[in-house]
């Protein structure tokens, strides 16, 4: 019964927030609208990569190695962006690379979100010495450069894809933990939580049904920032050769291999590099905008 009441009263403000959200997209500058279009395009292209790619991304052809993009000498019909050092179609590799990059980023940031939120909830809900210990861990994670930890992990566990995703997933949890902890502490003593507690609800029920719905939106906002962080982390590790192993390509590893051919065949490295640049700019612009529009509650917290 109480639950039903809660939902009913929750629905109205939530709907209002969605409306506000769409309104602020409409009011935003042309740059932000453009970014949204680009973002949609990137996601669509990544999803549809198998349909859009003109060739198999890993099919090698020694006869058509190192061909330049359309409009240059030695351009080969059907290979719009040219081919790489093994004669693989660069456009197809870019599409699949984008797909992989986004996939790893989404899974990795979701792992971060889950770990961070769980730690944040425990820390905020239990408090005391547990809280101190967990927040000490967070401090260490912040003070210690993550690239080094990732290097160690790669050396220890090798460059398996699953392991790589897990490593990526451990990069960002501290941010979620801090914010979630703050949110939990803020509502821990709220009258409605007390009321639920008085009716005899256990900690799981309180967290699952009464706290989580209230702290969900800041977590989701953080997650949208997290995805772009993780994309950059993934591409820099892959660039160093520590990420996904060939022949599978992500944008970072393609840039890394392209580095060796910059002098004579710049298109191999330049194409994925430009793509990473576009992604980075789009995510950062949208992130800044999102912070300004939606982030009132977070601003108060941190």
């Amino acid at each position: 019964m109480a639950n039903f009441e809660m939902n009913k009263s929750d629905a109205a403000p939530r709907q209002k927030a969605t409306q506000q959200y769409f309104k602020s997209v409409q009011d935003s500058s042309w740059l932000i609208k453009f970014c949204f279009i680009l973002l949609g395009l990137l996601i669509a292209v990544a999803l549809l990569a198998p349909l859009l790619a003109p060739h198999d991304p890993n099919a090698q052809s020694l006869l058509s190695r190192l061909r330049p993009p359309i409009g240059f000498d030695r351009y080969k019909e059907g290979f719009l962006v040219g081919t790489d050092e093994l004669g693989r179609d660069l456009l197809s590799r870019l599409l699949y690379g984008l797909r992989f990059t986004l996939l790893i980023a989404v899974i990795g940031s979701i792992i971060s979100m889950i770990i961070g939120s769980v730690i944040g909830i425990i820390s905020g809900f239990v408090g005391g010495i547990v809280d101190n210990l967990l927040m000490g861990l967070v401090d260490i994670q912040i003070a210690f450069p993550f690239t080094l930890m990732a290097l160690l992990a790669v050396a220890v566990f090798g460059t398996d894809l699953t392991i790589f995703v897990i490593i990526i997933g451990l990069a960002d949890w501290d941010k979620y933990a801090r914010v979630v902890r703050g949110q939990i502490i803020a509502i821990r003593e709220a009258p409605y939580i007390d009321a639920v507690r008085v009716t005899g609800a256990g900690p799981y029920r309180i967290i699952r049904h009464h706290m989580l719905p209230n702290i969900a939106s800041p977590i989701i906002v953080l997650w949208t920032f997290g995805v772009s962080n993780v994309i950059l982390l993934e591409s820099s590790l892959s660039f160093l050769g520590l990420g996904v192993q060939p022949p599978t390509a992500t944008l970072g590893s393609m840039t890394g291999f392209g580095r060796d051919y910059l002098a004579s065949y710049p298109h191999i490295g330049l194409a994925p590099a430009l793509m990473i640049l576009v992604i980075a700019l789009v995510f950062l612009l949208l992130g800044d905008w999102l912070r300004d529009t939606l982030d009132v509650r977070l601003k108060r917290q941190t």
């Binding site: 950059l232 591409s235 820099s236 660039f239 840039t255 392209g258 580095r259 910059l262 490295g269 330049l270 590099a273 990473i276 640049l277 980075a280 700019l281 950062l284 612009l285």
Partner: peptide, 11 residues
Amino acid sequence: YAIPNYILAIF
């Protein structure tokens, strides 16, 4: 701030 430095390096 936005451009990853290895991308800047390549340019």
